Amino acid sequence: MSIDRLYSVAARLQRLQNNYEDFGMRRTVEGIMVVHEHGHPHILMLQIANAFFKLPGDYLTPGETDEPGLKKRLDDRLAPLDPTMFEPEDGALNDWEIGDCLAQWWRPNFETFMYPFIPAHVTKPKECKKMYVVDLPERKVFAVPRNMKLLAIPVFELYDNSGRYGPQLAAIPHLLSRYNFILQ
């Protein structure tokens, strides 16, 4: 199986359908990490293949709860493979502070579209994606997979830019508008 086929949208949707038949609705958790750069909030995102952007996180295993699952996914995605080479201080792994759940997106069918609500005619959604605010630990070493880049995207770049980032990521400025950022 070629790499392109393995990661194509159609292949991802087929895996979703196969997993749905085996385990039920997929539950996904992602972290919104805000950093301040040049006096303006930015969101940490992973860029794949110079085109596709995503928040750090992934889907949960059946029976796994949101907060511990998100901490594990953040460690899997952003922590060094060999944490001893960076001399982590006590509890440096899994030291993420998970905050408010800012959004839930629902996939009603085996399609690419997700909605911030469950449509009235849908009784069994196929996926629920939750976005949580994640406070960055004071000292954290990030290690990103080779096929990805970790970028700080300015909030003003995301705003009303669903053409480039998609509706979920473009909604982040609206979701964060309930917070008052104080730069120190």
Rank of each mutant, 00 (worst) to 15 (best):
V34Y: 03
C128A: 13
D75C: 02
R107L: 12
F23V: 13
E111L: 09
V34C: 04
R139L: 09
E138H: 05
E111R: 07
R139Y: 07
D75E: 06
Y20K: 10
W105F: 09
V34K: 04
T65N: 05
M33F: 11
N19F: 09
P56D: 01
C101I: 13
W105E: 06
D58T: 04
L136R: 00
I43P: 02
D22H: 14
I32W: 13
V133N: 03
E111V: 15
D76F: 06
W96L: 13
F117R: 13
H38E: 06
G69E: 03
P88F: 02
E64W: 00
T84P: 01
D100Y: 12
G63S: 05
E111D: 14
T112K: 10
L81V: 09
A79R: 02
R26M: 12
F142L: 14
D135K: 08
L70M: 06
D76K: 12
N50V: 03
T28N: 08
H40W: 03
N109S: 13
F117C: 04
R107S: 15
Q17F: 15
N94A: 11
F117Q: 04
D135H: 13
V141I: 05
R27V: 14
R146E: 04
I32R: 04
D100C: 12
E87R: 08
P145I: 00
D76R: 07
E89Q: 14
D95L: 08
V141R: 06
M131A: 09
F110R: 05
I118S: 11
T123A: 07
K126W: 13
A51Y: 11
P83F: 04
T28Y: 08
T123N: 09
N50T: 10
L16N: 10
I98D: 09
K149Q: 11
V35Q: 01
I48M: 05
M85G: 03
N19M: 09
A103E: 14
F117K: 14
F110A: 07
A143R: 07
P119N: 07
D76E: 14
V29C: 12
R27G: 07
N19E: 15
Q17E: 15
A92S: 07
T28L: 08
V144Y: 02
F117A: 09
